[in-house]
Amino acid sequence: MSRDRVERAVFGVLRWVVIAALVVATAFPFYYMIMLSVRDIQELILDPAALWPSTITLDTYREVLTSESGGGQGFLVFIRNSAVIAVAAVLLTLAIAVPGAYAVARLRFFGRRQVHFLFLAVYLFPAIVLAIPLFVLFTMLGLRGSLAGLVLVYISQTVPVTVYMLRNYFETVPAGVEEAAAIDGCGRMETIWRVTLPLSKPALMATSLYIFMIAWNEFLFALLFLVERRESWTVSLGLSQLAGGIEIPTTVLMAGSVVLTLPIVVIFFAGERLLTEGLTAGAEKG
C-alpha cells in the first residue's frame, strides 16, 4: 500500500511540474514576441533582460504596416498577398476535392482503391524533390513572381489530405438521405450540392481551416517563386527576408511577427475543435 501512496504523491506533484514547464516553454516565446513588439528599441539595448516593458509604444506597428513609399515596411501589401493566396487556395482546393472525395466515398469505379496510394505518396514525398522541377519550369515560363503559380502548388499539396478528410466525413452521411433526394428528382451534382454538402458543414469548415493554415504558413515554395518581386511577397516571406538585414530594428520585426502570427492563431482557436477532431480522426481507429 505504501508504494501506491508514494507513487500517487510523486506523480501528483510531477504532473503539475510538467504542466507548468510546458506552459512556460510554449507561451513564453509568444509573450516575448508581443512584449518586444511594443518596446522601444533604445530601452531594449540598455536593458535586454527586462521581461516587461516600462513604456509601451505602438510606433513599431505603424512602421511595419506603412507602405514602403511612406517610409515603412509595407506589410499591408504582404498581408493582402497572403490572404489572396490562402483564400484562393481554400476555394479552389475545395472545388476540386469535394467531387473527388464524394466519388471515393460513394461511387464504385475502376481504381477507387488505388487512389489512396497515390495520395499517400504525394503526402509523404519530400517537398524539396518537387521544388526543383517546379522552380525550373516556373523560371522557363516566366511565372516566378506570380501568385497564381503559387496557388497552383498549394492546391496540389492540399488536395490529397482534403480528399481524405472529406471522404471520411461523407461516409458518415446516411446514403438513404441522398437516395431520397434522387427519388425526388435530384441529379448527382444537385444531390451533392443540396444534400451532402449542407450536412457536411463541420468537415468543410475543418478542411478550409487546414488549407488556409498551410497556405498562410508555407515558406519554401513562396521563397523559391516570389523572392525577386517584393510586391508579391507573402507575410512569411517578407518577414524572413527583412529579418536577414540589420537596418530594421528588432522591435519592428517583432511587430511583423505578431502581424503574421495573430490571424492564424485567432482562426485556429475559433475553429479548433473541428480541426483537431478531423486531424486525429484516424488515431482513434487505431
Binding site: 476540386i96 466519388a103 487512389v115 492546391i155
Partner: peptide, 28 residues
C-alpha cells in the same frame, strides 16, 4: 453510369496531381 460518374468526379483531383506533382517528379 456510376463508374463513369465516379471517374468524372475524381478526374479534377487526378489531373492536378498528375500535372503539378507526378509529371514534375518524373522530370526531376
Amino acid at each position: 453510369q456510376e463508374a463513369r460518374a465516379g471517374l468524372v468526379l475524381i478526374s479534377p483531383t487526378l489531373v492536378i496531381t498528375l500535372v503539378v506533382v507526378l509529371l514534375p517528379m518524373a522530370w526531376a
